[in-house]
Amino acid sequence: MQPSSPPSPSSPPPAPFSQLQKGFAANLVVAASVAAYGSVFGLLAAQKGIGWGQLLFMNLTIFAGSAQFVMVDMWQPPLPVAEIALAVLVINTRYLLIGASLRQLFAGTTLTHKALVMHLVTDENWAVTLAAASKRPVDTYFMLGGGLCILMAWCAGSLFGNQVGALLGNPERLGLDFAFTAVFTALLCSFWRGGRDLLPWLTAAAVALVVEQAVPGSKWYIPAGGLSGALCAALMPAHAAGKDRKQT
């Protein structure tokens, strides 16, 4: 509908906005569970005397669901500030690896761009974006769109729970506690690169299970499993690592 400007003959332009929209849409399914759990979180926060302003501040600055749950659980005056910060650090150690795994996606972007988009990387949009990237070209705006989708769902859900009450009385009765595991399990299917993944994946699963048993109640098992599995892949002989994965 724009006869004045002829379509650019060069190959597909970056089109950040379209990537943003696609990323937003791709995260809607998981965002529904994020909102439901957000409402539970908001209610718990209300019971600890955390108002909507503090809650919103927490959501926007920390933006990490499981860590915020633990934080609010420890929210007992006098506030154990150092213990809370340490617990959050431990739970979120996995983000060190998650950030590392995004090197290729962010290749060629500026430091400012990295600094802005990384704040909105959560387990959910990270997994959705990398799963999408295994099928079609995807850039950091896709990740950003997903982050905005998750952020909106988390804020809307938690503010609702904080002011009105939980959306669903007991999410566990409805199996919703399994929703995140189910989404991640489904996405895992597109992360499988063939036989060369077998040994690293077995290592990751075994180490994660052992660490989870050894250090119950913490989230050390995620970085421990992820790290050991990837180390296993690195130590395997190059020829066993199979064909080049540069192009698909």
Binding site: R94, L97, I98, A100, S101, R103, Q104, D123, A127, L130, T181, F184, T185, L187, L188, F191, W192, R193, D197, P200, W201, T203, A204, A205, V207, A208, Y221, I222, P223, A224, G225, G226, L227, S228, G229, A230, L231, C232, A233, A234, M236, A238, A241, R245
Partner: peptide, 15 residues
């Protein structure tokens, strides 16, 4: 190879 394996092994360790 370490970096390329990371996404799968992290997700597996969550799941």
């Amino acid at each position: 190879r370490f970096m390329d394996a990371l996404p799968g092994t992290i997700l597996l360790s969550i799941v």
